[in-house]
Amino acid sequence: MQCLRSRKRGHPIITDFLNQPTPDDLNPTTMSIDIRDLKVSIDGQEIIKGLNLTLPKGEVHAIMGPNGSGKSTLAKVLAGHEDYEVTGGSITMDGEDLLEKEADERSRDGLFLAFQYPHEIPGVTNANFIRAALQARLPKGEELDAVAFYKEMYAQMDALEMDRKFTGRSVNEGFSGGEKKRNEILQMAMLKPTYAVLDETDSGLDIDALKIVSKGVNAMRSPERGFLVITHYQRLLDYIVPDHVHVMKDGKIIRSGDKTLALELEERGYDWLNDAA
């Protein structure tokens, strides 16, 4: 589509400005997402009932829990979905109030959500979509360097073993479940967020795809980036090894521990925590 025809002005595409030091670096205690006593309702029904969580940069936190525990709701609230009403508590990202920002501003500020069910955008090619997202991060009047953009995208696609034909296909349209998830990781790799929330990225993936996706995530692990990995199964955590594991049930974190907690859960099931809680 010619719609996003670029006018080259020589600006570098490697827009890793998100990792540039900011004044906040002087105060390392605020370099995290902090969720305090969060309460969330949808259609008047409370889903999250006083949740506390701190995700510092440089760490990978996993959230596990049975269906209906509120895991995906948490992901959507972090990203700013308007259907969910925050009735109490706070969320800050690097010290700034996240809840007063629109979803697009949160994204440009460095928050990424890999969707459990990525949406299709008919007629908009993958390349143009990612390009538009990167362009949205540039100051007004600056244009993305198209050559550098394609070079980087091809490199990221190669790493994710994605065929180049995906650049010209409409976003997620006609993609298999596994291809959609890979596409989410591609977008994450291109946008280079400070905090990434992966919502059940492992669901619908066969073992080979799971390995490739995990490799993509692991390649992005860095002291400057935090991950919140939401999953139903321990299997993903064999490949993306978390620093901390939280168990969520009925809208709260009911247990936190290190990676061995996930293994224990796998062995004993969530009911074990039911009894313990």
């Binding site: 589509m1 719609c3 990203a79 700013g80 979905h81 308007e82 259907d83 629109e102 979803a103 697009d104 949160r106 994204s107 440009r108 990424f112 959500l113 969707f115 990525p118 949406h119 299709e120 955008i121 008919p122 007629g123 908009v124 143009n128 979509f129 990612i130 538009a132 997202a133 949205a136 991060r137 409409s170 977008q187 946008l191």
Partner: peptide, 29 residues
């Protein structure tokens, strides 16, 4: 759909940019 717009906003596009891209996609062919 609102969910489609939300998906695009999550990638950093403003609501108007997301709408524009959707409409352009619709007529693209």
């Amino acid at each position: 759909s609102e969910d489609q717009i939300f998906y695009m906003k999550q990638r950093g596009l403003s609501e108007a940019e997301a709408m524009s891209l959707s409409v352009n996609g619709f007529v693209n062919d």
